[in-house]
């Protein structure tokens, strides 16, 4: 089974870091991963996205995917293209208040004020990490403990002072979701 997750937002680098964290955590849990981000020559405020593919065996999926199982939409800027890729039964996590587009996704959906939660915790840049924590709680795609574990190693050494804040952001996002909404791997435990 392969799960494709598309994270979409506007630059900075929060979306890319959240994607990298998801990939690193999935690898730590013994799965195969592939990640491809596009941010090209985008300036701050331009659209940015990253796709993470997670599976049990060798991944055949190319880095460019048409159909995704899950979406984290931090902003509506590229929503038309993103919504086209989301499977109708796929899981959508929206960044409430910031995301302003019309959403007619028929599948499971969770709207959570990720940026608002991060801002309240005085880390307004950490919205994507809040969303990732919430996404993990809603899907069990990776365990929260694994995300907290890898928070430092995904950062360049000169940014390691942000690991603690990112851990807190993921924890807050996780705590904001009362339980699983759309299981990524069925009821089975993560592979070891």
């Amino acid at each position: 089974m392969e799960r494709e997750i598309l994270l979409s937002g506007i630059g900075g680098q929060g979306v890319q870091l959240a994607a990298r964290s998801l990939a690193q955590a999935a690898m730590r849990e013994g799965r195969r991963v592939l990640m491809f981000g596009t941010y090209g020559g985008m300036m701050r405020g331009g659209d940015t996205d990253a796709t993470v593919v997670i599976g049990e065996d060798s991944l055949m999926t190319p880095p460019v995917v048409d159909r995704v199982w899950g979406v984290i939409a931090m902003h509506h800027l590229s929503w038309p293209a993103v919504s086209e890729k989301l499977r109708s039964d796929g899981f959508l996590l929206l960044n409430d208040k910031v995301f302003q587009a019309e959403n007619s996704h028929p599948g499971p959906c969770l709207s959570i004020g990720a940026t608002a939660i991060a801002t309240e915790a005085e880390m307004p840049q950490a919205g994507s990490m809040v969303a990732l924590g919430a996404f993990a709680a809603a899907t069990n795609i990776v365990r929260l403990e694994t995300l907290l574990d890898i928070a430092e190693e995904v950062l360049p050494s000169y940014r390691s002072q942000f690991a603690e804040g990112n851990r807190k952001a993921m924890q807050l996002g996780h705590d904001a979701v009362s339980g699983s909404i759309c299981e990524a791997w069925g009821v089975a435990e993560a592979v070891s």
Partner: peptide, 9 residues
């Protein structure tokens, strides 16, 4: 570009 930027284990 794809080969340079894809992240894989």
């Amino acid at each position: 570009y794809y080969l340079a930027h894809v992240i894989e284990a």
